[in-house]
């Protein structure tokens, strides 16, 4: 009985400690964004931040847009199939719009960014740990959090919401494509219908979520990268863990937002 009890606490302890470590890194990031630039000469590295925005934002677009267009198309087909039974296919634009803006857009964008950019961040920082570059930074009196984490964090915080809004539009375009080619809905009708059902509050919800997702992915991927131990094997293990933890934390964050906005 007592051993079963213990194992539950041990099992709960691990994710709690992990969340604690992520929180510490997050607080350090906030310190280097809001306090240190005014206290010391060590400001935010703008050029690096822009470089990471190109990597996170622009280079993710092709994959993301292709996936979102197809998801919009699939979503429209699935809902149309169901709604045909009731002869109410005119609800397709609204359903697809709401589903994408509130859920699929933010969620898929975050997952794709985690898999594409988050994994790359972990692998890059992990390799820097292995090749002693992190130690070199610290012994040069430079802080890895200021130097490496902050630019990546800011880039994600800007890019993930921006990508999400674009992903929403592309996803709805997928539904639009099916609507006008297969469901005999007029283009203007489809657009009007989508806009009627999608409230501004839905857009805000999606935006808030995507902001949180960006933060979650960047903090997890940087934490995993900086805590690599061992050689190449360690980098591989950390990269896997980074993507898995990111997706898990994205879903948990999503759940919390959904409960709040329910």
């Amino acid at each position: 009985m007592s051993t079963a009890h213990q194992s539950i606490w041990v099992r709960l302890g691990k994710p709690a400690a992990y969340t604690g470590k992520l929180t510490i890194l997050f607080l350090q990031v906030l310190r280097w964004i809001f306090i240190e630039p005014f206290r010391s000469r060590k400001g935010i590295r703008r050029i690096a931040t822009v470089d990471h925005m190109v990597e996170t934002g622009i280079r993710t677009m092709p994959t993301l847009f292709l996936i979102m267009f197809l998801v919009g198309l699939i979503l429209a087909m699935q809902t149309a199939n169901q709604l045909k039974q009731f002869g109410t296919t005119e609800f397709v634009p609204g359903l697809v719009g709401v589903a994408i803006v509130k859920e699929f857009g933010p969620l898929l964008t975050a997952i794709i960014v985690a898999a594409r950019v988050g994994a790359a961040i972990t692998a890059e920082l992990g390799t820097m740990v292995v090749s002693e570059e992190i130690m070199a930074l610290e012994t040069m009196a430079l802080r890895p959090v200021q130097f490496l984490v902050v630019p990546r964090f800011i880039a994600m915080l800007i890019c993930v919401p921006a990508l999400t809004i674009m992903a929403d539009v592309v996803g709805m375009a997928g539904g639009f494509f099916l609507g006008i080619t297969n469901l005999n809905i007029l283009p203007i009708e489809y657009i009007n219908n989508s806009l009627n059902y999608t409230d501004f509050s839905d857009v805000i919800e999606g935006f808030a979520k995507s902001l949180a997702f960006g933060g979650v992915v960047s903090i997890i991927s940087c934490h995993e990268g900086l805590s690599v131990e061992g050689g190449a094997e360690g980098v591989g293990a950390a990269t896997t863990k980074s993507v898995v933890s990111s997706i898990l934390f994205i879903i948990l964050t999503d759940l919390m937002f959904t409960i709040v906005f329910y």
Partner: peptide, 18 residues
């Protein structure tokens, strides 16, 4: 940090920023 500025280190593999 004040001590760190007093020394430099040559790492085993250089540890250059790639």
């Amino acid at each position: 940090d004040t001590i760190r500025r007093r020394f430099g280190i040559l790492f085993q593999y250089g540890a250059l920023f790639n």
